[in-house]
């Protein structure tokens, strides 16, 4: 690069200091409340500590060895994958369908949109309590199987609750995407005689890809961290039928007081999410058409 004139260089420096001053407060907050816990958590994962003992004992990578070879952990991972897969797929499909519905010029759609979105802003504990009534084997609206007291039905039951809670959010985001699509393309396709299905899968779906990508990442992360509804409705049970990674972290940390192993599970979850997000980003980068 060519040498800069002196005036330009000092202006750059002033701008640099201004930049630093403006981002410092945010950086500080992020450092204290996000990065510090991650670093501390990574440290705890190398220790054996029951949270009451005066100090943690350093054990190196023993927690990782024990966790990764534990059959209970493998089962937890499997439950988490099934749980996340069903909720992510369900939220996207139902959300997209609802978005198309809400995009139709029907009477009262404003009210219906609000109703569909409302569960998303309700507290998880309240939602869980309501659904316990709905699933109650004695007098519930959806009585049939004893949902929460049966290992085969408890996980599907939880998935239903989370879909009910999340699909409205996906619908809202998709709807915003749909309404932002350029009308010319669709009109041109109609002129060319394209069928509704073809306009959907060859034009609208690809154009919505950035939205899908956003929802995919946020829903995967959100579902991995899901805790409130599980805590109220199943407590990870019956047996370990609904023990997801996040419930296992709580159980290991706050019921068993094994801070080291809870921290290990958290780091494993962090790495999984990091890998999933990176892979999604890499794969979709090539397919997503940003306009």
């Amino acid at each position: 690069m060519q040498e800069n004139p002196v005036g330009l260089r000092s202006r750059r420096r002033r701008e640099y200091w201004l930049f630093a001053a403006l981002v410092a407060p945010n950086l500080l907050v992020i450092a204290v409340f996000a990065y510090w816990p991650i670093v501390y958590n990574a440290f705890l994962s190398l220790t054996d500590w029951n949270m009451i003992a005066a100090r943690p004992a350093f054990v190196g990578l023993a927690n990782y060895g024990r966790t990764l070879t534990d059959p209970a952990f493998h089962r937890t991972l499997w439950v988490t994958v099934v749980f996340t897969g069903l909720i992510v797929a369900g939220s996207l499909v139902i959300g997209l369908a609802l978005a198309f519905l809400f995009n139709l010029p029907l009477k009262g759609r404003g009210a219906v949109r609000t109703i569909a979105f409302a569960p998303h802003v309700l507290s998880g504990a309240a939602v869980a309590t309501i659904w316990l009534f709905i699933f109650d084997p004695g007098y519930g609206l959806l009585r049939g199987p004893d949902w929460m007291n049966n290992s085969d039905w408890a996980l599907p039951g939880l998935v239903i609750v989370y879909l009910w809670k999340n699909a409205g959010f996906a619908a809202l985001i998709y709807l915003a995407g749909l309404q932002g699509l350029p009308k010319e393309l669709d009109e041109a396709a109609v002129m060319d005689g394209a069928s509704t299905w073809r306009r959907f899968h060859a034009i609208k779906l690809p154009l919505l890809a950035p939205i899908t990508f956003f929802l995919l990442i946020t829903t995967v992360i959100g579902t991995f961290q899901a805790f409130d509804v599980i805590a109220v409705m199943t407590g990870g049970g019956p047996g370990d039928a609904t023990t997801t990674l996040s419930w296992a972290i709580y159980n290991e940390g706050f019921q068993a007081f094994n801070a080291g192993r809870a921290a290990t599970l958290s780091i494993i979850m962090f790495v999984i999410l990091l890998v999933v997000t990176t892979v999604q980003a890499r794969v979709l980068e090539r397919r997503v058409h940003y306009r």
Binding site: G237, P238, D240, A241, Q255
Partner: peptide, 16 residues
């Protein structure tokens, strides 16, 4: 620590 949880989650498998 957590022996109680290990036992009652076992009982859940018997009952459920």
């Amino acid at each position: 620590r957590n022996a109680n949880v290990a036992i009652y989650t076992g009982l859940q498998q018997i009952y459920a």
